[in-house]
């Protein structure tokens, strides 16, 4: 059998214009060092910040960071891969309990406990990912909701979680610099993941499963992977949460928590990392900022969700290309390829 040269190359001379970037910047050890330097800078800045700002504001910042890690995971599942999850808080719960048990009962080091919390959550993510082999859309959503309720009830009834009374005696091991560094690392990891063959495959699952399959994408694999990675992030976030509040109980991770996390992702702009971060900041800070309204604040919160969805259904950053916006703002000239009409297209 003769092999045929069926490449379409040669037909075009036009390869992309190479990016204008100094060659040394493209070396990966250099980039790795730069990234480490960034983390150190984040640590230094937040350490300094910790000294200046009042404890209460510091606490809000800290929870914002934890929430960012968790909602980035949800954004991967729902925003990027298109699998609607109404039970993300369950992964957070699993990570929180697992990490707490690791440090309190098993006396493991905190870092290891965090990692294990994430991994256990990821394992459950795989378990939950399997129904996605057969379910889609709202059926999947209700299955994830059901899964989360089951996790809550199980946590309420198990001895090892100390049931409804809650798990206490966890040491406070988390401070703002740690959370800030992890959140920045999480953002970076997500950005890298999305801008890769792996991430593109996930987005193709969201866009059109049949076309994705025809393009060679194993949709089942990427769905389960998205659940696993998303759950890992939630699990790590849960571990951080447990070692911040020092006390966790099953009702901390109920349906409303899942809904809150989903709101953060949708509010900012589904599938967008910047949107997820923004939505998380807004919705973490909003209830605190609205605290002066005391009892009315949840009323305002609910109404705000409705109004925002009516006026910006694609989310706050829906349809905004951030890189382009920044470039335009900094007058760095147009992007290499001309973009027509990007605005106004919410998802």
């Amino acid at each position: 059998m003769s092999t045929v040269d069926n490449s379409v190359s040669g037909a075009v001379p036009g390869a992309p214009a190479p990016r204008r970037q100094p060659a040394w910047l493209k070396l990966w050890p250099v980039q790795a060092l730069l990234f480490l330097a960034l983390l150190v800078a984040v640590w230094a800045v937040t350490e300094a910040l910790n000294l200046v700002i009042p404890a209460y504001q510091g606490q809000i910042l800290l929870f914002t960071g934890i929430n960012v890690i968790i909602t980035l995971g949800l954004n991967l599942i729902t925003g990027v891969t298109g699998q609607l999850s109404l039970g993300h808080a369950a992964f957070m719960a699993i990570g929180a309990y697992a990490a707490a048990i690791c440090t309190v009962s098993l006396h493991l080091p905190f870092a290891l406990a965090l990692l294990l919390g994430g991994l256990v959550a990821a394992l459950f993510g795989v378990v939950l990912g399997f129904p996605t082999l057969r379910l889609s859309g709202d059926y999947l959503a209700i299955a994830t909701l059901g899964f989360a309720e089951i996790v809550r009830v199980v946590n309420t009834n198990l001895k090892i979680t100390n049931g409804a009374i809650g798990y206490y005696g966890i040491q406070k091991r988390v401070d703002l610099p740690l959370v800030a560094m992890l959140a920045v690392a999480a953002v970076a990891a997500m950005a890298w993941l999305e801008n890769s063959r792996n991430g593109r495959a996930m987005r193709s699952v969201r866009e059109d499963e049949i076309a994705a399959t025809a393009s060679g994408v194993n949709t089942t694999f990427y769905k389960i992977q998205a659940f696993a990675v998303g759950a890992f992030f939630a699990g790590v976030g849960g571990g951080l949460y447990a070692h911040t509040t020092t006390f966790i109980q099953p009702t901390d991770f109920g349906f409303l928590k899942s809904v809150e996390q989903l709101s953060m992702v949708v509010l900012g702009g589904m599938g967008s990392i910047a949107g997820t971060v923004l939505g998380t900041i807004v919705l973490t800070a909003a209830p605190e900022l609205l605290r002066f309204m005391s009892n009315y604040r949840m009323l305002v919160y609910g109404a705000t969700l409705i109004v925002l969805m009516i006026f910006r259904p694609g989310g706050l950053l829906g349809g905004v290309d951030l890189r382009d916006a920044v470039r335009r703002a900094l007058m760095l000239g147009r992007s290499r390829t001309v973009r027509t009409s990007v605005g106004g297209d919410g998802q």
Partner: peptide, 11 residues
């Protein structure tokens, strides 16, 4: 026209 099913869900 821009509102997807998820926006309705959040609303």
């Amino acid at each position: 026209r821009n509102a997807g099913r998820l926006s309705a869900l959040i609303s």
